[in-house]
Simulated assay, not measured.
Amino acid sequence: MKLRGLRGSRNIEDRRRSNGGGGAKIGGVGLLLVLAVGYFAGIDVTPLLQQGLPQDQTSAGPLTAEEERAAEFTSRVLGTTEQVWGQVFPDQLGRPYEPPVLVLFSGQTSSPCGGASGATGPFYCPADEKAYLDTEFFATLSQNLGARGDFAAAYVIAHEVAHHVQNEVGILGEVNRMRQQVSKVEANALTVRLELQADCLSGVWARNVSGLLEPGDLEEALNAARKIGDDHLQRRAGRFPQPHTFTHGTSEQRSRWFARGYELGDMNACDTFRARQL
């Protein structure tokens, strides 16, 4: 992805060398969506989060060059999402877009949606309208999950911003209300539709930054979507895929909905909640 010379976002909150801000207990809308990108797909993380994780720990020493590059990369990718959605919202919805803040942390931090660690993967917290990212996840994505390339990492950021897009248009609140009225299996199914819609919206973003793409970038994003499918991750964990536990969608679904958003570039094409088949 050609990011050199692009402006970075100013909506970055860097907690990597400071104690994380105080987070409230999980509840209400915060309980709804600790929307990890899929690293723990199919595993209910709510009990873990309700137990409370340790607060951010101050790290000694300056940031490494690699950590600085990861932060700069994140800032520039976030900047592209601000430009894209800042144009798409007026064009397709007739309204302005308010971008989220992205919190960079190292190891552990807290949020109004509860404590978090790098192991949970990136997530979006609708309670404070912030996305949270431990940039170490980029290494996990590449080395452990086999989703290599800078555009795979960019897709992760775009996916979390897509959850903010859903929050901006009221989808998150509506899904939260619906989830509270149905069984666990039905709630999981709603969350799958939410995640696949975020994948599709990530594709809309990708279409609008196509001028920045390099050969192989699109396949990097599609590969990342496949690597974090529920079925793939459950097999990696030595488990037979159990569809009723899925919370993010299969590898095939995730890559297909991303491709749909990329091919059509229309937010309306991402209505997974009216789709008869996912």
Rank of each mutant, 00 (worst) to 15 (best):
E186W: 05
D128E: 15
V161E: 02
L190Q: 02
G173E: 07
Q181W: 12
N144T: 15
A162E: 02
L145S: 06
N188L: 06
M178T: 09
R177W: 08
F138T: 07
E168F: 04
N176R: 14
M178I: 06
N167L: 09
E186V: 05
N208H: 14
R193I: 07
D134Y: 07
L201D: 03
F151A: 04
F137K: 02
G146C: 13
A139R: 13
C200H: 02
V182L: 07
L201G: 01
V185K: 09
L194V: 11
Q180H: 13
E160W: 04
Y155N: 13
Q143G: 13
A206R: 00
E160S: 08
V165Q: 01
L141Y: 03
D134P: 10
R179N: 07
F151V: 02
R193H: 10
A131F: 11
H163W: 05
A206M: 04
L145C: 14
A139T: 15
L145F: 14
L172S: 11
A152Y: 00
E168Q: 15
K184S: 13
T191Q: 10
R177H: 13
K130W: 11
A158R: 00
A206F: 01
R148F: 09
L194Y: 06
N208V: 07
D128L: 13
L145W: 02
V182D: 04
V182N: 05
N167W: 07
H164T: 08
A158H: 07
Y132A: 05
I171R: 09
M178C: 11
R207Q: 14
H159M: 07
N176M: 13
N208I: 06
N167S: 10
A162H: 05
G149E: 02
R207V: 03
Q166L: 03
A187M: 06
L190M: 10
L141E: 08
L172D: 04
A198C: 11
Q166D: 07
L141A: 08
A187I: 08
T191W: 02
G149R: 04
A198I: 01
